[in-house]
Design a protein around this nucleic acid. Structure first.
Lengths: 205, 205
DNA sequence: CTCCAAGCTGAATTCTTTTTCAGTTAATCT
DNA sequence: AGATTAACTGAAAAAGAATTCAGCTTGGAG
């Protein structure tokens, strides 16, 4: 039983989570009542009010509008998966996560689930010596501050590239991991750092 | 747009799927109407009837009871996620998926969710030229029959290796993707193929 | 040209679901 | 013992949602 909840409240929270998983939608108050033999919707409502006050769910006045907070589902399950949007293109002045720009969703472990994080398909062979191939999907954390040598996504002249990041005073070096290619030196002003690459996924064959 | 659907129907199906993912519950008919500027609930209902007849959704008369069939969500998105066991070691005569052998679970897209599939941590640099590095997690499908050139997990002398697979009559070649290493030729009898590598995941720094 | 299907408007009706009100019981705390 | 809280009953009202009916428009297909 999760912390701060009575036994009954915990059972009900679990049932709600099961419902969402099994039926694709949260239960109604009455449905919860049927499951627990509570004949009055108000009896159930008391529990929901308690769960809401304790921060495990959120509600609105609409039908089936029970939303289980992240904190709650994380507490009950080691719900260690989530999805991140797969972004089609990155361009200056264009919101990365704009709806028409999202091509799909990629499952990732919660270790990489940070606010604003997204996925990107790698184009080109510039990082081939680091095992990042053309077509790989990378996970980008836009809120991390790049450290020396980190692999970053950077926007230079409205083109997105994946490179190693090094800082030399006011100049930034974007160094490929490919002996056939040259590092790029640009002024800090003319490069937009989009984030740090934190993970990679590849489908083979 | 998925097969058999008009443009409008496809858009609406997508919206329903997005709703379920983003809000944790399906939309109401009226909510769909707001999104698409359809002022009459009946206009939306026509679309839902069509989607149901074509097998993309199922409905009941309850509130928000739109259920997207597996077929439909698989066709529109690969957004289904699941987990596969991360196996600690592979050894002859030892069941791979024995509980004490499972070190964790890795989220993967349902495209890789096949019966018996599991994950493995790569040890060594034998596949480095194919972008498979030491420490990477690979997803293994044990039920696929390896084709020429496929990357396989094979058990030779009770040691698990990841290599390219080639067949020469009764002899099997296990070829590394590393110029510094030699291919291994073994008789078909002395190698146990554990499965085909279908995907790869890496955490960076 | 005519017919039909897709895609809608508008409105009425019915069902589902939430919300609110007025109490009851048993256990726990002070 | 008296007060508080969790966990309910029962009923009614109000809001949310689905269903149904009647008809309009448009762009093909025959």
């Amino acid at each position: 039983m999760a912390k701060g909840l009575t036994k009954r409240q915990g059972e009900i929270l679990e049932f709600i989570i099961d419902c969402i998983r099994d039926n694709g939608m949260p239960p109604t108050i009455a449905e919860i009542g049927v499951r627990f033999n509570i004949s009055s919707t108000n009896g159930v409502n008391d529990h929901l009010v308690a769960l809401e006050k304790k921060g495990y769910i959120e509600r609105s006045s609409k039908a089936r509008s029970i939303h289980v907070t992240d904190q709650a589902s994380a507490g009950l399950y080691q719900n260690d998966i989530g999805v991140l949007p797969l972004v089609g293109r990155i361009a200056a002045g264009f919101p990365i996560l704009a709806e028409e720009n999202v091509e799909g969703h990629v499952p990732v472990s919660s270790a990489h689930l940070r606010p604003g994080a997204y996925c990107l398909k790698v184009q080109g062979d510039s990082m081939i010596e680091d095992g990042i191939l053309d077509g790989d999907t990378i996970i980008v954390n836009p809120e991390a501050r790049p450290k020396e040598g980190d692999i970053v996504v950077a926007l230079v002249d409205d083109e997105a590239t994946v490179k190693h990041f090094y800082r030399h005073g006011d100049t930034i070096e974007l160094r490929p991991a490919n002996a056939a290619m040259q590092p790029l030196f640009v002024s800090a002003a003319s490069v937009q750092l989009q984030g740090v690459v934190v993970a990679l996924q590849r489908s083979i064959a």
